[in-house]
Simulated scan of single mutants.
Amino acid sequence: MRQTAQIKQTFPNGTAVVAVVRQGACAHNCAECGGCMTAAQPTVTALAENTVGARTGELVVVETENAQLMGIIAFVYLVPMVLLVAGYLLAQAFGLTQGWCILAGAAAFAVSVLLIVALDRRVKRRKSIQFRIVAHKEG
């Protein structure tokens, strides 16, 4: 996956801190909207491998590995929905009333939130999602 980012800080070891605009918040048409990286746009700050020698303040193109990122996205969006429905249906299979079924679904959903928090901590600890600066942004 390729995204536009702004270099916030560079380090002598060939890495840089980048601010990546969340994909849904930016159409990447800077001429039309007045420029990237405004304060109103939600951004994610990450460490990236600076393969092009970019300097602080420059706009660059960063790349992440699609397969791993898509797996994490699928987990974050699908697991809560699946556990919510599974919790409800399991309680219903045991013949519980609708109120208990809803409570079981909510409890299963809460478990999914805990699983997502655990995944987030694991990804941050292992630095599983790596950004790599691949080009200077043109235009």
Rank of each mutant, 00 (worst) to 15 (best):
R2V: 07
R2S: 11
Q3R: 14
T4Q: 08
A5V: 02
Q9I: 00
P12E: 15
T15C: 06
V18C: 02
V20P: 04
R22Q: 13
R22T: 10
R22W: 11
Q23M: 11
G24H: 12
A25N: 08
C26P: 03
A27Q: 03
A27G: 01
A27R: 08
H28L: 11
G35M: 05
C36E: 04
M37P: 01
M37K: 05
T38W: 10
A39P: 04
A39Q: 05
A39R: 02
A39F: 04
A40V: 09
Q41V: 00
P42W: 02
V44Y: 05
T45A: 08
T45L: 15
T45M: 13
T45D: 07
A46L: 02
L47I: 02
L47S: 09
A48L: 04
A48C: 10
N50P: 00
T51G: 09
G53I: 05
A54D: 00
R55E: 10
R55C: 02
T56H: 14
T56A: 13
G57E: 06
E58I: 02
L59Q: 14
L59I: 10
V60Y: 12
V61A: 13
V62T: 02
V62D: 00
E65T: 13
A67W: 14
Q68N: 13
M70C: 10
G71H: 08
I72L: 14
V76N: 03
Y77M: 10
V79W: 04
P80C: 11
M81T: 11
V82M: 10
V85K: 08
A86T: 11
A86G: 03
A86L: 15
Y88T: 04
Y88L: 10
Y88D: 06
L90A: 09
Q92M: 14
F94A: 13
T97M: 12
Q98A: 15
Q98R: 12
G99R: 09
W100P: 07
C101E: 12
C101Q: 15
G105Y: 09
G105A: 12
A106N: 10
A106Q: 10
A108W: 04
V111N: 11
S112F: 03
S112N: 00
V113W: 13
L114N: 07
L114W: 14
L115Y: 07
L119I: 07
D120A: 14
D120W: 14
R122V: 12
R122L: 15
R122A: 13
R125E: 14
R125V: 09
R126Y: 15
S128M: 13
I129Q: 00
Q130G: 01
F131K: 01
I133K: 01
V134D: 03
V134I: 02
A135Q: 07
A135G: 07
H136C: 03
K137P: 02
K137N: 10
E138V: 05
